[in-house]
Amino acid sequence: MSSVAFPRSVTWTGVALIALWLASFGLSFVDLGDAALVVALVIAAVKAVLVVAFFMELAYEPFPMKLALLSAAAMLAILIALMAADLVTRDTPPLLPYRAPAPQS
């Protein structure tokens, strides 16, 4: 068995990452409209989960180890939720779109 150096989880994670990379690149040439960003980010999230779970081996770690990353994710969720709440409840955006001044002649 000493000739088998790499667990199948590593091999398949690698294959999946390359496939998702090509898929994301290919899809970027398709006009998906507003869904493009969502699709690209979902693919990115799947790739990130694969790397964290099987390359960084967090899937095999005990819960207290996972808690470090989970707490960071929770703090980030609070940050983004409050920021989004601020953005959507403002009467006027603080950074108004630029309006060119009327030409003076």
Partner: peptide, 11 residues
Amino acid sequence: WIFLWPLFYLA
């Protein structure tokens, strides 16, 4: 980088 790529180059 997996997240930087779609935000700055793709979508």
